[in-house]
Design a protein around this nucleic acid. Structure first.
Length: 908
RNA sequence: GCGCGCGUGGCGAAAUGGCAGACGCGCCAGACUUAGGAUCUGGUCCCGUAAGGGGUGGGAGUUCAAGUCUCCCCGCGCGCACCA
């Protein structure tokens, strides 16, 4: 490829300016209290020593540095944020735009297992490659703030935050996390052991026995998705559910706040919806059913609690179902049913969650022989177990109302359980199988009430009787936080005589031990358990050998960027207050975005893919709220505005993947067209948030546009000389580049009215589009300007200067090169020059062409002075010959005049 | 099944309820040129020689006026999915 003549010498221009920015630390962001060197570009615009201008924190989702390197999807979001970062800098804001590496993770570890190379080594290589690629795109990151989650200086604070979680409990009275020391133990707890156990049960980080899939042959735990029919996907070995000691984080305590606070942040509707869905709040009631003891020798009373969103249908409950794993199954099953129950439970246990929830599966289940008493009418109803009831949701037991629940209906029909209608559907709809709200029937004191009323009434009745209460249930579960992996943060925890204790803060970081074998051990213990001398501490204590999941490092990285080299604290208080605090919009400029006017807090703009819609974004919000409660950060939410860039598909319209062979490598694009063209094309492709297919041929458009910009300013003859010189001595490129002169058509003269109009129209459109994140139409406005300016015989310097400021965020290398050649002796370097402001007066037209419609169809046009009144417009329209002939003999019903826009004549 | 989003030229796409198709790709014609896969100029929604007519997935509605608002249907994408 790449035999065509280059549009302009981007291959010389781009490295030159990248090196320039690096040498001058052009994009270094300054913290309060920093001494800003006088010669730094920032100081040329913002006098050092004075208070910093308002901040703007614009963040990318930092990448996992995989071995595959960047694909063209990465630079989509990165280019968008870079354009905005450069734009906000030009507006005079102090911009924080950092980049780092989310470098713990499974691929590095698996690669290590296969090749015996230490993950540290491959991670370092991958980071170096990612960094080279990202730098070759000319992004204005502050590389002083680069962070790496695997760096001991970073993971130390990840561990520190874990300790904050560990040392806290959630106080439901204050609805926030508080230090564990404030937790009063119940008076009956006398011994230290009791108290410790009680506190352990309340901590935000706690230990729990959890069943996980364990595969003996592979020597590792497997995810649910990796197990089919009790066999491992890989290799087909048997896998068993094995309870293992796991660390959990009490995210469920924050369910309500995580849900509610979504209303305070500016995220897309669909993203918020996904989080709401994940949290899965539903209002209903918990109802206790007493298990019949008729014929039983035991004295114990058993109660089964169910959760229902439809307590109003209690009269319609004709049976109950427990999840097969429910604790009470063994106790309540009658002797003659024990064997079938045992068999059914064994069958269920061998299935993966995936299989159990498979669609279109026939309902299965067995009768336990036991009955429960409906608290409302004393009726005895059979208790079944069935795998359509999940232990993990609600109470793991349901009251089945087949008449008004699709699943219960299916089950009841299959097993011939009675079906009793208790809700009348509105509008004569079929009532059996009706799931909506209607009117209660056959329901005692609820009969005749609409569903909402019936719910209230039954709940207060249940509460009076003491056999039920109103509850809110969440789908959200506590976060399983431990992994049996090597390449992750070790827990800062030690075990003594069966209880856990923290590693003192002063002993952080706890670094992973040196290992040569990263595989899990045969016993199911994490690989860290192999490092005996690391695990065993003096006095019989041992280290926790699980590690944290990959999410840990990304839960707080945006905070470390604020103060990345601080060794005293995870993030300095002043830095946090400045960058995360409410930004004060400058009153002098109307150009600050609407978000600034709405007084946002936290990260001002966060751009990244939808793949993190729930996991990362929910986990990070959770950690942030804990830090907020404990007084370590000043905002309740971390990311004020969040935008998801749309996926870029391959040329075939399919998702880019190695297997399909449709991956486009940015390196190739940069080699053939340059970074500026790639940046421009990525943004020109379509709206940022839309999914859109890549088309390499399409890069030609922006590439030619940049070629036109080059030719708009450069002298043809000196360029020919450059080309010839380069052909003769290719090594002298950089030197020859400096000799290229600008065209003599560029003069320091007053622009003409049309020239002013062209540039001011461009300023207006580009500015408005940047505020609205409409990069594609902003670029189109730049193209329109250049297309017109190409026809000018004389090119005023001031107009080109303004244009280059507008171009700089999009194509920074070319803009810098041409700006440099303009030789304006500007004290302020291009990236810090004030953004131009358009003058509306210059855009006013003297005359307007106004369409004249009849019944909404354009029939003619009139040219009128821009000042024409509605009356004059109407008269001019009616005076047209064409219009006259068309309305001849017809009755005019109405004439609509939209000033400066159109005239529409409605005929009867 | 439920929720959300989207359907506009050959393609990527524009369009505060007010002239549909800006800008770009591709294509066609021409200019310059030894040459063109560089550049420049013109053209390019459909039917029609034209006048004119039709046109934003389909159907209805609101409106002087609908790609845009409302309802129904069809298609595509994403998310959740036995969530009680």
């Amino acid at each position: 490829m790449s035999v065509t003549r280059r549009q302009y010498p981007f291959d010389l221009i781009e490295p030159k300016w990248q090196e320039h920015w690096e040498r001058h630390e052009s994009f270094r962001a300054w913290n309060p209290g920093d001494t800003i060197p006088r010669q730094h570009p920032f100081a040329q615009r913002h006098a050092p020593g004075k208070t910093l201008p308002p901040k703007y924190y614009i963040l990318d989702m930092f990448p996992y540095p995989s071995g595959a390197g960047l694909h063209v999807g990465h630079p989509e979001g990165y280019t968008a944020t870079d354009i905005l970062a450069r734009y906000k800098r030009a507006l005079g804001l102090n911009v924080l735009h950092p980049m780092g590496w989310d470098a713990f993770g499974l691929p590095a570890e698996q690669y290590a297992i296969r090749t015996g190379q230490h993950p540290r080594k491959t991670t370092e290589e991958n980071i170096a490659n990612f960094k080279r690629q990202i730098k070759s795109l000319g992004f204005s990151y502050d590389w002083h703030r680069e962070i790496d989650t695997t760096d001991p200086a970073y993971l130390r604070w990840t561990q520190w935050i874990f300790l904050q979680l560990y040392n806290s409990w959630f106080n439901p009275r204050t609805n926030q996390a508080e230090p564990i020391a404030t937790l009063a133990c119940p008076p009956e707890m006398k011994t230290e052991t009791d108290k410790r156990t009680y506190r352990a049960s309340k901590r935000l980080a706690y230990v729990s026995e959890m069943p996980v899939w364990w595969c003996e042959q592979l020597g590792t735990v497997l995810a649910n998705e990796e197990v089919t029919d009790g066999m491992s996907e890989v290799g087909g070995y048997p896998a068993v559910r094995k309870p293992m000691r796991q660390w959990m984080l009490r995210i469920t305590a924050y369910a309500e706040r995580l849900l509610h606070d979504l209303e305070t942040i500016d995220w897309s509707h669909s993203l918020k919806e996904m989080q709401r869905n994940w949290i899965g709040r539903s209002e209903g009631a918990e109802i206790a059913f007493k298990v019949c003891r008729a014929g039983s020798a035991e004295n114990t009373d058993y109660f089964i609690n169910v959760f229902t969103t439809r307590p109003d249908t209690l009269y319609g409950a004709t049976y109950m179902v427990l999840a097969p794993e429910h604790k009470l199954v063994d106790q309540i099953s009658t002797p003659e049913h024990r064997e079938v129950v045992r068999q059914y439970r064994a069958l269920t246990a061998s299935k993966s969650d995936l299989e159990r929830t498979e669609l279109a599966k026939e309902k299965t289940g067995v009768f336990t022989g036991a009955h429960a008493i409906n608290p409302l009418n004393g009726e005895q109803i059979p208790i079944w177990i069935a795998d359509y009831v999940l232990l993990s949701y609600g109470t793991g037991a349901i009251m089945a109302v087949p008449a008004h629940d699709a699943r219960d209906l299916e089950f009841a029909q299959k097993f011939h359980v009675p079906i009793r209608q208790v809700v009348q559907a509105p509008g004569g709809e079929e009532s059996i199988g009706f799931l909506g709200e209607g009117t209660s029937v056959n329901s005692g004191f609820m009969t005749g009430l609409p569903t909402a009323e019936a719910k209230k009434k039954i709940i207060s009745w249940l509460e009076e009787q003491g056999c039920g209460r109103k509850t809110i249930n969440y789908k959200l579960r506590d976060w399983l936080f431990s992994r049996q992996r090597y390449w992750g943060e070790p827990f800062p925890i030690i075990w003594k005589n069966g209880h856990h204790e923290v590693v003192p803060e002063t002993d952080l970081p706890v670094l992973p031990p040196a290992l040569s074998d990263f595989k899990p051990t045969a016993s199911g213990e994490p690989p860290l358990a192999r490092a005996k001398e690391w695990v065993n501490l003096p006095g019989g204590a041992t280290r926790e050998t699980n590690t944290m999941p990959q999410w840990a490092g990304s839960c707080w990285y945006y905070l470390r960027f604020l103060d990345p080299r601080n060794e005293e604290i995870f993030c300095g208080r002043d830095a946090e207050a400045y960058w995360m605090g409410v930004s004060k919009s400058s009153p002098s400029s109307g150009l600050l975005s609407a978000t600034a006017d709405k007084a946002p807090s936290g990260v001002d703009l966060y751009i990244g893919g939808t793949e993190h819609a729930v996991l990362h974004l929910l986990y990070a919000r959770f950690w942030h709220k804990v830090l907020f409660d404990l007084g370590h950060v000043s905002t309740a939410e971390p990311f004020f505005k969040l935008v998801n860039q749309g996926l870029i598909l391959g040329e075939d319209g399919q998702k880019m993947s190695k297997a399909r062979g449709n991956v486009v490598n940015p390196d190739d694009m940069i080699r053939d067209y340059g970074a500026d063209s790639l940046r421009l094309y990525e943004m020109f492709l379509g709206p940022l948030e839309m999914v859109k297919p890549w088309n390499t041929a399409g890069v030609e458009g922006p590439y030619r546009f940049l070629g036109r910009v080059w030719r708009l300013l450069v002298d043809e003859q000196s360029e020919t000389a450059f080309e010839q010189g380069l052909a003769a001595e290719p090594k002298k490129g950089p030197e020859l580049l400096e000799k290229i002169k600008l065209t003599s058509a560029i003069k320091d003269v007053e622009p003409s009215a049309p020239q002013l109009k062209a540039i001011h129209a461009c300023i207006k459109k580009v500015t408005e589009d940047l505020e609205g994140l409409r990069f594609n139409t902003a670029i189109s406005a730049l193209m329109i300007f250049v297309n017109e300016a190409m026809t000018w015989k004389m090119k005023p310097v001031s107009v080109l200067r303004d244009f280059l400021i507008l171009l700089q965020p999009f194509a920074p290398h070319l803009a810098e090169e041409l700006f440099d050649k303009l030789n304006l002796q500007s004290a302020i370097p291009l990236p810090y020059l004030p953004w131009p402001v358009h003058n509306p007066a210059l855009l006013v037209e003297a005359t307007l062409e106004i369409p004249v419609q009849i019944n909404g169809k354009v029939r003619d046009r009139i040219v009128v002075p821009a000042t024409a009144t509605s009356q004059e417009l109407e008269e001019a329209a009616l005076a047209c010959e064409k219009i006259k002939s068309l309305i001849e003999g017809k009755t005019i019903k109405k004439i609509i005049v939209v000033p400066k826009t159109l005239v529409n004549i409605a005929l009867a």
